[in-house]
Design a protein around this nucleic acid. Structure first.
Lengths: 147, 147
DNA sequence: TCCATCTAGATAGATCGCTAACTGTTAGCT
DNA sequence: AGCTAACAGTTAGCGATCTATCTAGATGGA
């Protein structure tokens, strides 16, 4: 088997294993804030975007709506977000960060940048750019293949 | 923000989203065999390696032992694998594919190669090699950071 | 106006991943 | 022989993801 063939065999497997490891690293680091990787990402996203509906958040973070609903459930229970019913359309819930959560944003941002730096250590700008391009291409391929 | 900075921000996010999408694509394709991405991977692994213990399988597929145990539970229930107690060491269970599962290997192999081909479509050998190298580096970084 | 359709969100059920803690078995050392 | 440590596997509990389905509310055409 050529090197190319064995790379093809391994790259998806590496992708999957790496994603799991990144998540567990994130979970370990953010555990003291009552956060997980998914929660931290939502926290940071909301702090940048401002209040959005659940559907908008789901689309922006590329998860399905029930996934987002459950994520919000958990963060609502631990007092990090608030569901506000939109006055003009009672179907919509606008998701706000609570003051407590706003206060954590800086710390989580720092922590998440640290994780990112750890993960990307020793990788050249060129290689990283190529990798990102390739991952985006794969993503596009999967979306197309899904039809 | 430089391009390098924005790539750093996006690449991990793309990685996570891509992994989810690849898994769901796999699940959709293999659904008719009563398989999922994880089950298909175990099926193919066992067909190549021959019978192994649960711990060996867990290590080879880079998941924890309870994860492997439950995966085997499900496949045992649907009649794809068999747990054989090792005569010399009653702690060990040697996991065998059943005849029914052996018969599916070729079809699943084909299917999994098709998914792989779909995902990797249009990506050059050079870029893929770089990507794999970068992912492995990231994996190594995460393992080191986890201590 | 009224009924059909679309949209937003919630709920149910499944899979897969993790850690922590438990049982049973083996091995090793005194 | 017996105690301790290590190992294999299981169980319990939680988080995140998906699809399928349900309810409530909004919209639009007959």
């Amino acid at each position: 088997m050529s090197d190319f063939e064995s790379t093809k065999l391994g790259v998806l497997r590496t992708l999957i294993a790496l994603t799991r490891k990144v998540r567990t690293l994130f979970d370990a680091r953010t555990g003291e804030y009552g956060l997980t990787e998914a929660r931290a990402r939502l926290l940071l996203h909301l702090s940048k975007s401002g209040p959005l509906t659940q559907s908008e958040l789901a689309e922006a973070m590329e998860v399905e709506r029930p996934t987002m609903a459950r994520l919000i459930d958990g963060m609502e229970t631990s007092g990090m977000v608030r569901r506000d019913i939109h006055p003009g359309d009672r179907r919509q819930r606008h998701i706000h960060l609570t003051d407590a959560a706003e206060g954590q944003v800086q710390a989580v941002l720092k922590l998440s940048e640290q994780v990112r730096a750890d993960v990307l250590a020793g990788i050249s700008e060129e290689d990283l750019a190529i990798t990102h391009k390739v991952l985006l291409q794969m993503f596009d391929n999967v979306v197309k293949a899904g039809h």
